[in-house]
Amino acid sequence: TTVHIGNVTYHFDNPEEAVKWAKEMAEKLGLRIEIHGDTIRVE
């Protein structure tokens, strides 16, 4: 599972961890997340 924040990509072996981490980052940055299969974007 990959999480994209701007130009930076993070890789997670556990999809649930990826979603949890992306949600925390989105809250901190005042952004929202979009999930497309195994790709998560924070925008």
Rank of each mutant, 00 (worst) to 15 (best):
R32A: 14
V8T: 11
I35S: 03
W21D: 00
D38F: 03
W21E: 00
I33Q: 01
D13W: 08
E43W: 07
V3E: 00
A18K: 00
H4S: 09
G30I: 03
D38Y: 02
T2G: 03
T39R: 07
M25G: 00
D38T: 14
E34R: 15
L31Y: 11
H36G: 04
E27L: 09
K20F: 06
E17H: 07
K28D: 05
M25I: 13
P15S: 13
T2K: 13
N7Y: 09
I5R: 01
G37P: 04
K20M: 10
I5F: 09
V19N: 05
M25C: 06
E24A: 13
T9E: 14
G30K: 06
D13T: 12
D38I: 06
K23I: 12
E27M: 06
T1A: 11
I35M: 09
V42C: 04
E27S: 05
H11V: 09
A22D: 00
A22H: 00
V42H: 02
K20I: 08
E24H: 12
N14V: 07
H11C: 09
T9R: 12
P15I: 14
P15K: 14
L31H: 10
A22I: 04
V42F: 07
G30F: 04
V42M: 12
R41V: 14
M25P: 00
I5E: 01
E27V: 05
T39Q: 11
A18W: 02
I40R: 01
F12W: 03
D13M: 09
V8R: 15
D13K: 09
P15W: 15
M25S: 02
G37E: 06
E34N: 14
I33D: 01
K28Q: 11
M25H: 03
G37F: 05
I33T: 04
K20N: 09
M25T: 05
R32M: 15
I35K: 04
D13L: 10
A18S: 01
H36N: 12
R32W: 09
N7R: 11
H11E: 06
K20H: 07
A18I: 02
K28W: 08
E17I: 08
E27T: 05
P15F: 15
I40L: 04
T2L: 10
V8L: 14
A18L: 04
K23L: 13
I40W: 00
V3W: 00
V19M: 15
D13N: 11
H11F: 14
A22S: 03
N7G: 13
V19W: 14
T2N: 08
R41A: 05
K20A: 12
E17Q: 10
L31P: 01
D13A: 11
H11M: 08
T39M: 11
T2V: 12
E17A: 12
D38Q: 12
E17S: 08
H11G: 03
D38S: 13
G30A: 04
R41P: 02
E43M: 15
E27H: 06
R41M: 12
Y10N: 03
V42Y: 02
K23E: 10
